[in-house]
Design a protein around this nucleic acid. Structure first.
Lengths: 150, 150
DNA sequence: GCATAAAGTTAAGCCCGCTTAACTAAAAAG
DNA sequence: CTTTTTAGTTAAGCGGGCTTAACTTTATGC
C-alpha cells in the first residue's frame, strides 16, 4: 500500500464524479434520438475502431452474431450505418458509419464535452496548464502501454 | 476559441479513453452478476445519493413510477435493496441498499479501479504527483461549483 | 474436388423494461 | 370533514434484445 494513496484517492474521486455524469449523459442522449444503449454502443464502437465485421462486434459485446446482425439491421434502416462489401472475403461485411451516423456521434461527443468546457472556465490559467499536462500523461500512458487490466 | 485548445484537447482525449474502458467494464460487471444495466443503475444511484423514494429514482431516470417500482421489486427479491418505511410519511418508502447490495457495488468499484491502479504503476513519482494534483483540482471544482451543464 | 469451417442472415420464442390505466392508502387543502 | 394531491403498487400489453436452430454463401484444408 505504499504506492501513493494520494494518487489512488485523487483518481477515484475523479472517477466517481466523472463516471456518474457521463453515463447519465450518454444514456439521455441515446434516448433523445430514439436509440437504445446497445444500438448506441455499436455506433460508438464503429466510431472509434472504424469499420469492422459482424463478428468483431459480437466478440466485443459478447453476444451472438445473430444478435448483432439484428441490431445492425435497425441501424441500417435508421440510416446510421452501411453494410459494405469486403473485397477480400465475399462472405464478410464491413460495417461503417454513414455520414448521418458520424454526425450523430460527433454531436453526442460535443454535448458530453460541454460541461467539461464549462468546467475549464472555472479554472485559472495555471490550473488549466497543470490539468492539461496531467491528462496528457495519463492518456499517453494508457495508449502506449495498453494497460489492459482485463 | 482562445480558451486553451490544449486543455480541451487533453481532456477530450482522456475522456475518450476513459469512457470507453469504463462503460464496457461496467456493463460486463453487471452482466456477470446477472443484472441488467437499468437494475445496476438503480443500485449505483442508491449507492451515492443514499436512500430515496421511488419518485426520486423515476425522476432521475426519467421513467414512470410504475417502471421503477417493478425494477425495485426484482432488486428486492434479489436481496440487493430494502424498502424501508418512511416515518414521516406513511405513503412513502425509502429505498436502501442492503449489505449485499453495498458489497456488490463496492466490488464493482474496486474492479473498475484496478486498471487505473495498474496505470499508476507505469508513472514516475513526479508524474503521479502531477496527476494527483490535477485531478484534485478538477474534482473540487466540479463539487464546489456544481458545474451543472444541464 | 470435397468436406469442413467460417461469416452472416432469418425466424421462433423468451424475458425484460417500459407505458398506460386502474387501484390503495395516506397527506394536504379547503 | 370532504376533496384533491401525492406515493406507490399491480396488471395488461407492446416492443426490444438475446438465444438457439436452421440455412445460405464463401473460404480453407486435405
Amino acid at each position: 500500500m505504499r504506492k501513493s494513496p494520494q494518487f489512488s484517492q485523487a483518481i477515484r474521486a475523479w472517477m466517481d464524479v466523472f463516471m456518474h455524469r457521463s453515463m447519465h449523459g450518454w444514456s439521455q442522449f441515446a434516448k433523445s434520438i430514439g436509440l437504445s444503449m446497445q444500438q448506441f454502443g455499436i455506433l460508438m464502437q464503429l466510431h472509434h475502431r472504424g469499420g469492422c465485421g459482424v463478428s468483431g462486434l459480437s466478440e466485443h459485446f459478447d453476444i451472438t452474431n445473430a444478435a448483432v446482425s439484428q441490431l445492425v439491421d435497425k441501424l441500417v434502416q435508421g440510416g446510421f450505418i452501411r453494410r459494405d462489401e469486403d473485397l477480400h472475403d465475399r462472405r464478410a461485411k464491413i460495417l461503417n458509419l454513414t455520414d448521418k451516423g458520424q454526425e450523430l456521434i460527433q454531436r453526442g461527443i460535443e454535448e458530453r464535452y460541454r460541461w467539461v468546457d464549462a468546467l475549464a472556465e472555472k479554472l485559472t490559467v495555471e490550473e488549466r496548464a497543470k490539468v492539461s499536462e496531467a491528462l496528457m500523461i495519463l492518456t499517453e500512458t494508457v495508449r502506449e502501454e495498453g494497460v489492459t487490466s482485463r
